[in-house]
Design a binder for these strands. Structure first.
Lengths: 302, 302
DNA sequence: GCGGACCCCAAAATCCGCTTATGCTTCATC
DNA sequence: GATGAAGCATAAGCGGATTTTGGGGTCCGC
């Protein structure tokens, strides 16, 4: 049975290219590395290195072990990371990663109640656009991820090890300058917006815009693309174009010269929270998820 | 970074169900196991066990680590096994796994020349029906695998890490009792065998028989199935039925009362050797593969 | 209530691995 | 080809980690 420390050192030697360099990186002295590699060769039963002048070269067996080392260290790191996450969660520290509009609306509401009801829980919040947030969750960089998906969009399937908690259906509105003729209506038909110029948002939102318009039989004239919601707001106010905008984003739009109107036919994006299935039963994650659900439910009534 | 020895002990504790039992299995004393698990819990940062009366129970973190332990130990074992194989090969010991008819024909011919030309090489031969032989190769239980596939058959794709060395196209014959009316012909048309009763061989061969007949527009009347070639020979001799049989098998059929005839349209199975790509450059495997190719080429002329 | 099975604890002994110190080889430079 | 720098190997000594020993506590079945 190989010693994991030897494997780690071996891996460092391979990537550093010398014993001395590996020793410097790992905080050993050079003879320590020599001895570890000797021990490794003893347990392997084959030489792993050959001397090539001043430097080293891997033998065939060394090459083989180098490939395996990646896997071995990877599985060790995965285990360590998961246990680390569990320990953190047990201590009540939850890392949440949301997308901008949720971080500005849903999350603060949920967190306010959370901290009142469960004073022991500590939250760290980061921001990432979907699908990056879910990727972070899978990489163990956060414990709860918020993401959204458009209904018709070809979204990647949710990995097996993740639990999806549907939060709300976020209806889409069209953001208009206040003087716009259609702004007097309560709701606006997508079909009436054929002649408009458009401002598109994040890649997913842009793709959705194109699809919704395609269903109405036209291709929108997208004159500007940015994932900065406040920029979109200002652009609309300035009359550059109009934009499709989820209600959640609209909630923190405060520009005097823009207004949102629900679109017809009804469009929405599904907002969900994601958690590793294994963490569902951990109190800290459970309460965070529960408060998110409550906050989402409260908001759905508005 | 976890210590692999701790992981190994942990795994044994989980499967044994107690510290003492694990200690007995691993040749430690019980306190040693206690301390190792203590150290493991320290590096993990979470308790892994809770006391449940006389025995132990895993915590949630323990469950998680137990799942990872399988992976970790598996990747360590895989590395060790591959290095072991390399060491063996470097020492000139090659483990070959063939299917019965190759073991009786091709392999002895190749091995005779091999041992003459390369006296240092030692060969161990085992037998397995495809696709089992390739599975053994992937599991590291042999170094060279021989397998065959029928042309139209839906064969599983060859894994990436394997090199396929085509050896020969083994033409199919039909095995007939000597008195059979068609036995006077040099070759036999499959279409003329509609009314015959059939004896089928191994699963792959049986599937191929069904397909070949289906191409001729009929379903064969299979009255007997066995993967024992000598049994097939005797059954044919006894007039129970006829059989589709590769030339390679025919080569060691010596029963007086049976005879083989090539079938039309030409049918054959492809016989190949498989080696881990990484072992292609290792002398011992290289010479074995080369001798197999030569033996196959020599036989193809017959 | 007693014995067996099991685990924990503490101290002593052992063992392993790291460091220090030194020598050898290789390579670049003059 | 002499010299110095960089790198690896080896030996000896030390310190910490790990194991064993010995003793004690708890739980469970009889």
């Amino acid at each position: 049975m190989f010693d994991s420390r030897h494997i780690k050192t071996f891996h460092q030697v391979v990537s550093s290219g010398s014993y001395s360099a590996a020793a410097r990186v790992l905080g050993y002295t050079q003879p320590a590395v020599t001895q570890q590699m000797k021990a490794l060769e003893r347990t392997a039963g084959v030489p792993l290195f050959t001397r090539a002048g001043r430097g080293l070269r891997l033998t065939e067996a060394g090459e083989a072990l180098a490939r395996h080392a990646e896997t071995i260290l990877g599985s060790l790191a995965a285990a360590q990371q998961q246990l680390g996450a569990l320990a953190r969660l047990r201590a009540g520290r939850v890392r949440v990663c949301g997308f901008p509009s949720a971080n500005a609306t849903l999350i603060p509401e949920a967190m306010a109640r959370l901290l009142a009801d469960h004073p022991g829980v500590r939250v760290e919040l980061t921001e990432a656009e979907p699908p990056e947030s879910v990727q972070r969750l899978l990489r163990g960089e956060c414990d709860v991820a918020l993401s959204f998906s458009y209904v018709g969009g070809g979204n990647a399937p949710v990995p097996e090890e993740l639990a999806e908690i549907p939060l709300l259906e976020d209806r889409l509105t069209v953001l208009l300058p206040v003087g716009h003729p259609l702004a007097r209506r309560h709701a606006v038909r997508m079909a009436d917006l054929v002649e408009e110029r458009w401002i598109a948002g994040c890649p997913r939102c842009r793709a959705n815009l194109l699809q919704v318009c395609a269903e109405q039989g036209y291709a929108p004239d997208v004159v500007f693309t940015t994932d900065d919601n406040l920029a979109v707001q200002s652009l609309v106010a300035a009359g550059v174009g109009i934009a499709l905008m989820p209600s959640l984003v609209l909630a923190f739009m405060c520009h005097q010269k823009v207004t949102g109107r629900l679109v017809e036919p009804h469009q929405f994006r599904r907002v969900s929270a994601y958690v590793l299935r294994e963490h569902l039963r951990v109190p800290a994650t459970a309460v965070v998820v529960e408060e998110l659900r409550l906050a989402a439910a409260a908001r759905a009534g508005c």
